[in-house]
Amino acid sequence: MGSITLEHVHKSFGGHPVIPDASLQIEDGEFVVFVGPSGCGKSTLLRLIAGLEDTTSGIIRLDGEDVTDQGPASRGLAMVFQSYALYPHMTVRQNIGFPLKMANTDKATAERKVADAARVLNLTDYLDRKPRELSGGQRQRVAIGRAIVRQPKAFLFDEPLSNLDAALRVNMRIEITELHQQLKTTMVYVTHDQVEAMTMADKIVVLNAGRIEQVGSPMELYRNPANKFVAGFIGSPRMNFLEGPAADKYRAATIGVRPEHMRISRESGEWAGRVGVAEHLGSDTFFHIHVDGAGMQTVRTEGEKDFAPGDPVWLSPDPSHIYRFDQSGLALR
């Protein structure tokens, strides 16, 4: 079991509020991702759940039980740190077995559990090595192994992939997702990378300046962002925003059009501009267009298109995919 409830959690450091007021319900077995730019309070929120920080006010419940005043050791959660935080003086075996030792598990059971975890994570051959003899990906696995053996109520991940190179990150993303499908334990995952959020989450929590901007499934957030911030943060490349006359036409302060919903043409369209930089990815091409009076806009086209820098072009939005926002940035429906 592992449902997590936050009720009006408030946290300030030395009078400076970091989390003004957060309420959130995480169901048992869910994979929840906290996403937001750096300094948005997502890590603090995770550490509050872990018990590594205490709340200034508000209540945190695990399976309905108030754990606000409990220390991290007694909450029964497991955490994987960005730096992996492996114990450098212990072997992989001792690292993975450490939580069991702390729980006074009997030797035979502990050995079996460590062996099981090592097998699942492909670490069996490395059990007697020290962390410094492992690659980044292996260290990451040890950290996960250490979390698994505890059989925690929930796993907490604090930007676990940000120290890995790009290729490995994709692999680990899949491994963690598979692990979740296998264990069906609640996972709370913090990242600043919206791709990780989109690909892994059952539920995304978008944070900005300590505030929860929107909670929902990846596609919900993609289709119906509640405000300009979420609209801009979710989706890649970033959504184009246009203001002024272009927006007035749609009776909005700002309109947003995703690059994949923007059409480019040499002949005609809604907004005139000139081609700037073209980024050829093979399957797709991103064109950055200088639009007269509306700044730089991005267009995503499939396959290869032969627009050269400086070419005059026209852009027009897909009318069924125009997002409208009011003066304060809230979505208009």
């Binding site: 018990g51 590594l52 920080e53 220390g71």
Partner: peptide, 8 residues
């Protein structure tokens, strides 16, 4: 960065 308990 810590809890009240650890500060005491």
């Amino acid at each position: 960065m810590a809890t009240r308990e650890s500060r005491t």
